[in-house]
Design a protein around this nucleic acid. Sequence first.
DNA 1: AAGTCAATATTTGCATGCAAAATAGATATT
DNA 2: AATATCTATTTTGCATGCAAATATTGACTT
Lengths: 234, 234
Amino acid sequence: MRMSVNARQTALYELRRRIISGELQGGDKLRASHLAEDMVISRTPISEALLKLEAEGLLIGDKSGFTVRSFSVQEVFDAIDLRGLLEAAAAERAAEIGATEDHLQRLKDLLDEMDGILEDKNLDAYETLNETFHVAVLHASRSPILIEEAMRSYRLPFAGPSAFPIKETDHNRFHSSILTGQEHHRLIVEAIEARQSARVFSLMREHARVAHGNVEAALNARHATPQLALVKDA
Amino acid sequence: MRMSVNARQTALYELRRRIISGELQGGDKLRASHLAEDMVISRTPISEALLKLEAEGLLIGDKSGFTVRSFSVQEVFDAIDLRGLLEAAAAERAAEIGATEDHLQRLKDLLDEMDGILEDKNLDAYETLNETFHVAVLHASRSPILIEEAMRSYRLPFAGPSAFPIKETDHNRFHSSILTGQEHHRLIVEAIEARQSARVFSLMREHARVAHGNVEAALNARHATPQLALVKDA
DNA sequence: AAGTCAATATTTGCATGCAAAATAGATATT
DNA sequence: AATATCTATTTTGCATGCAAATATTGACTT
């Protein structure tokens, strides 16, 4: 069961995995003592992990004990929009201060690479690269505060830019939402380069909303998508 | 030294206090063992507090040990703008969905109360009420995700809506920035009531920027303002 | 059946012990 | 003087023990 060298990491990663994989359901009460026994480590690193995951927003710590948080559909949408908002602010800032040559080149390279991947229909690889692209936009803002906070918003398993809950269930929709997304990416880089800060703000914010439709589709399909394990049905 | 009933709270609050008050300087390395001895509690609750404060952004946890984080002036501005952005999103949402009668009434009551306080020149009380008002705007959004995240942005001692670093040093400026702020508040409530979401977004975002000037003034005055203790000079 | 309360069993909060890691100090080497 | 090497000291990571807090059971009452 032990997954990494030290107990602290074991506790944090394994616990997070269990939560976002759906192995632990929203509402489940967590017993530090039981978890410790289960992972064959002591309770000390477990408590620490519980505290961290509470700060991350995956657990709710009422007095005496932690409970796995569950999210309403509206909260899922809000978390996605929040990510869009923060990314939009970063893109806006990048346009305002002007992206460095390096940052701009990196964005263009990523665009090209993603184009290549789309031609090969290698959709799995796109998922990863998509997140890389989003992070590259954040970095173009050169604002540690914005970068930090936007990346924090990625932690909820359904909110990050690489969350495609329909990947398994609806291949067509997945493919077409990727095509739309890639179109957005191109416009976003273009707007940053042209220093159109207001425009890139709108573009980026809207770009995140592509995910709304996907979440809805996945929920209708009622397939047990791990990324939506924490979504409570109405 | 022990300040509250249980050691966990003692550790967290006391440690946070020491950081925000400037008692601990940016860059200082924290020794759990020393802190524990100093607060007459064991190292366990100290470690937990360190972890929490790292998640809060006040500490940086490099391998083996925590260091008090310090912020550049630009980072202070960015943190203020981030708060403004999140509050703006909440106000926008409130306008979009329409604030409930209760929320709107609460906002108006707070406006009146603040007016009264300004007439009495009771500026200290204004500080608290100002934050209450901002929180009331957040709640009008009825979005737990937004509320949570915006309030999180208040934690940095210079970023929250009740941070007036010039309160002590420049009474005139303090007073006039409050008057401007109160003007904004009125427009913000008006815009929420009129469901003018785009307008209230701009208003709220700009409202946070009042704080920029105050920070600059306080830094120029070079008085040791505790709220700016973590700001590293260029 | 539902509520009350005592008795019991779990579970947590927190101190502490100890091995391992990190840091600081001292001494030698270039 | 700067660098490297070894040693002594401090500090951390984590397990564990124990009292206090919490949850659970079940008998008893309404």
